[in-house]
Design a protein around this nucleic acid. Sequence first.
DNA 1: TTCGTAGTTCGCAAAATTACGAACAATTTT
DNA 2: AAAATTGTTCGTAATTTTGCGAACTACGAA
Lengths: 110, 110
Amino acid sequence: MNTKNYSLDNEQLARFAKAMGHPARITILQFLASLDCCYFGDIHNELPIAKATVSQHLKELKDAGLIQGEIETPKVKYCINQANWELAKVYFNEFFNSIHLKEVCCTTVD
Amino acid sequence: MNTKNYSLDNEQLARFAKAMGHPARITILQFLASLDCCYFGDIHNELPIAKATVSQHLKELKDAGLIQGEIETPKVKYCINQANWELAKVYFNEFFNSIHLKEVCCTTVD
DNA sequence: TTCGTAGTTCGCAAAATTACGAACAATTTT
DNA sequence: AAAATTGTTCGTAATTTTGCGAACTACGAA
């Protein structure tokens, strides 16, 4: 993204989080994961957006490594990328569980 | 964001994920959580970016509900919003754990 | 060969994100 | 009163994101 130095782990976690940062993409991931496997058209049917936009969201998920696609002419089959899915799961788990909150320090939420 | 209808849960999860979708914000959250509490200046020292930009990132985390701030003149104290932090934890856990992958369906990652 | 199906890519527009320096407030110190 | 400290807000710029329709590719069917 830029040349600022953040840890690689933080960059990877941010990349996963960013890919999940849109309701359409969350919906796609849940749908895909619940079926194990399906075609573009099935995904498009689940979403209230144009196919060009669905295609873009799928590309972003693919670039982030969370899903993978396979051409089965004339259709395109999509599924979860299991290895990276497990990786993301580990990253988020570590992120949330390595932290043990002790006290509330700020009382105001301005 | 727009008027498309996604489930409220998906919108909430996407909102949390989006807030986590930048390495600077991941760094802030980890730092804050490791200390329980600290001041703006401490956060700024951890990051390779200008204070105005840090302030913007803090605002986004606050808007997403993940942190909270309190003025302690002339400083500003920040900490994790514990209730929403737990909520996010639950959302991500459910998202990743409710899913049981069975088979690999796509072999190609084009 | 022409048509239909299934998706991707292109071109565009609007909006949001990221980043910075400068200006500004609010208090404390000198 | 003047100066220093601590952050936020403003104005601006560059880039990215989101979204759509239209054009395009690739294949199979009529």
